[in-house]
Design a protein around this nucleic acid. Sequence first.
DNA 1: GCTGCGGGAGAACGATCGTTCTCCCCGATG
DNA 2: CATCGGGGAGAACGATCGTTCTCCCGCAGC
Lengths: 191, 191
Amino acid sequence: MDAETARTRLLETAYALFNERGIQAVGMDEIRSASGVSLKRLYQLFPSKDELVEAVLRRRDEDVRASVTARVEAHEDPEERILAVFDFLDAWFRQPDFRGCTFINTFGELGGVAGPVGDIARAHKQDLRDLFTALVAAAGRPRELAGQLTILANGAMATAGIEGSPTPARQARSAARTLLAATRPAPARTT
Amino acid sequence: MDAETARTRLLETAYALFNERGIQAVGMDEIRSASGVSLKRLYQLFPSKDELVEAVLRRRDEDVRASVTARVEAHEDPEERILAVFDFLDAWFRQPDFRGCTFINTFGELGGVAGPVGDIARAHKQDLRDLFTALVAAAGRPRELAGQLTILANGAMATAGIEGSPTPARQARSAARTLLAATRPAPARTT
DNA sequence: GCTGCGGGAGAACGATCGTTCTCCCCGATG
DNA sequence: CATCGGGGAGAACGATCGTTCTCCCGCAGC
C-alpha cells in the first residue's frame, strides 16, 4: 500500500471513529484494525496519537472550509451568500453520521487545556467568524451582524448535535433572514 | 464528616474538575484528594464513576435551571423575561471558571453513546427549549421564535466557551431583541 | 537458491485508571 | 480495660491504552 493512501485511510478512519465516539474513547489499535494500516506504518506517519489528532482536525478544517466556500460562491447576491452558509449546515446535519461539530465536540472533550489541538479548534471558529465578517461587509450590513450570525451557526451545530435533528439549520437560517431584513440598507426588494 | 456534607463536597469537587478538564481526564483518586473524602466513602455514596457523573450532571441541571428561573422571574414584562435568559448567560460567562456549557461539553466528550448521561444532557437542552416556548407564548410571539432563541442561547454558550470571551452573550441578546422586534404583535411600545 | 530487508501481525511493556481489599486507628460500650 | 465496628489511608488488582519490540514472511539482487 502506498504511503499516501495509507495516510488518507488513516485520517478518514480516525475521523469517522472520533466523530462517532470521541477521541479518548478510540484506541490506536482500533484505528489500525478499522483502517487496515499496520501499527508500524501508523507510527511512521504519525509519531503519536496527538499528532494524528492534530492532522485529523486540520484535514477536517480544510474540508469544512472548502465545502462552505463552495456553497457561498455558488451565489452572487450578498444576502444569498450569507444564507448559503446555513444551507450548508442543513445539508451537513442531514448526513446520517452527523454528530455535531468536530471542533465544538473536541473543545468539550479536551478544552481548557492548552496545546495545538485547542489552537486548531479556536482558529477554525475564528475562521467562521472571519467569513461572516467579510460576507456582512460585502452585504453592507453593520459589523455586529457577523457576531450574531456566528452565534446562530454555532448554536445550530450544537443544538442539532444534541437533539439529533437537522431542523436547527432551518431555524437558524430563518433567524438569519430576519436579522438581515432588520438591517436592510436599501429601501425595498423582497427576499 | 457528615454523609450529606461528604456528598455535597464530592459533587462540587467533581463538577469543578470535570468542568476544568473533562470527565475522562479526571480520575477518582483526584476527586478523592481534592475533596478530602476517602475512596471508601466515595464508593459508598456513588458506587461507580458513572453514577457520580450522573449525579453531578443532575445537580448542575438543577442549579442552572434555578438560576435561570430566578433571573426570569425578576421581570414582569414578557419581553424582558425572554431577554433575562441572555442576561443570565452574560453573568455566567463572566465567571472566571466558565469553560462552556457542561452539557454541550459532555455531549461532545461522551455523546452519540446511549446511556443515562446522554439522556440528561438531552433533557437539559429540551428544558431550555421548553422554557423559551413558554416565554414566547406568554409574549404572544409565533412558536418558531422559541427554536431560534434556543439556538442563540446554545450558540452563545458554545462560542463563548471556545473563544474564552463573554461577549457572545451580549451579541446573542442583541439578536434576540431584533427577533423580538421583528415579530412584535402590538403596534407601538419601545423596548 | 541464498541473503537482506521492508513491512505486517501481534506480543510485550509501562503507565494509568476504576474498583476492591488490607491494615490500622479511634471511639463507643460493657 | 477489652472488644468491636466504622472509617481513613493507601496498596493491590485487573483492565485498558499508547508505544515499542520481536518474529516472520515475501521479494529484490546476485
